[in-house]
């Protein structure tokens, strides 16, 4: 680790001010950033911890929209969403291990936008709104490819608003080593129709499988997906699976998610 200054503001305003310094970087739960620092792959001059900002922590149900503070850790989301949004609780409750879940935050996960991370599929799959210190961004506009988002330098995710769907399920097929998603599919059926968000698979990061959405809008049953498939082109190919295998899993897991969502 290179040396850096450390700040721990208690308000979003102070954090924004601290982040305006040259080479400053936000620190959420540190579950991605700290390992990066230890490997000397990043060298911020100031690390601005968001962990003391109470106003960006916590979960509440605002008339059918789950409002999750950007600094809320995965374990707290898993507990708070258990009754209102069990699919999301399951997703949060299966990220990493207890230590990761007690430190890592939803804001950090969405800011990082790892192509294998779980939360991006929930945000895109629910049609969530990413709230920052300056604006609100629709999930459809927020994710811009692997590790790339609409966030500007120094912008802080303060909350994520997720409309609670009528039906939903998340199926994660684990990469055997990291246990991130080799492929993860988040399916929802809500007021605005069906959304199918896929993580882990594409070289462009999380994406919506629109063909499946159309079919499921007609009939929200796994059988509606018979014969549908995605192409292996543009899918991640690595030690753990070829692009074709990932593409195959997208179809299998989407069916399983629909079946699970239907209970």
């Amino acid at each position: 680790m290179y040396s850096f200054d450390f700040e721990r503001p208690t308000t979003v305003a102070d954090a924004v001010a601290a982040l305006s310094k040259e080479e400053a970087q936000a620190l959420g739960g540190g579950q991605t950033l700290i390992p990066t620092l230890k490997q000397r792959l990043a060298s911020p001059s100031v690390l601005v911890s968001l962990s003391a900002i109470e106003e960006i922590k916590g979960v509440c149900n605002d008339g059918g929209v789950l409002n999750i503070g950007g600094g809320t850790c995965h374990a707290d989301v898993a507990a708070a969403a258990a009754s209102d949004f069990p699919a999301l609780a399951k997703l949060a409750g299966n990220i990493g291990d207890p230590a990761v879940r007690s430190r890592g935050t939803i804001g950090g996960s969405l800011a990082n936008n790892d192509p294998s991370a779980c939360y991006p599929s929930a945000a895109l799959g629910t049609g969530a709104t990413i709230v920052t210190n300056t604006r609100e961004i629709a999930a459809d506009d927020y994710f811009q490819g692997m590790f790339t988002t609409a966030l500007e330098e120094g912008e802080i995710i303060t909350a994520v608003k997720m409309p609670i769907p009528e039906k939903a399920a998340y199926i994660k097929f684990e990469q055997p080593a990291s246990r991130f998603s080799l492929v993860g599919v988040f399916v929802t059926k809500g007021a605005d129709g069906v959304r199918v968000a896929v993580t882990g698979a594409s070289e462009d990061g999380v994406f919506r499988w629109t063909e499946a959405e159309v079919a499921l809008n007609g009939n929200f049953d796994a059988s509606a997906l018979d014969g549908l498939s995605v192409s292996g082109d543009g899918m991640i190919s690595d030690l753990h699976g070829s692009g074709d295998y990932r593409a195959h899993l997208v179809a299998v897991l989407t069916k399983r998610a629909v079946t699970e969502a239907n209970g």
Partner: peptide, 17 residues
């Protein structure tokens, strides 16, 4: 696993299960 250039592909627990 190594790639054809001799780079270790499974160099951490992220890839070595």
């Amino acid at each position: 696993a190594y790639d054809e250039n001799g780079q270790l592909l499974s160099a951490s627990y992220m890839d070595y299960a």
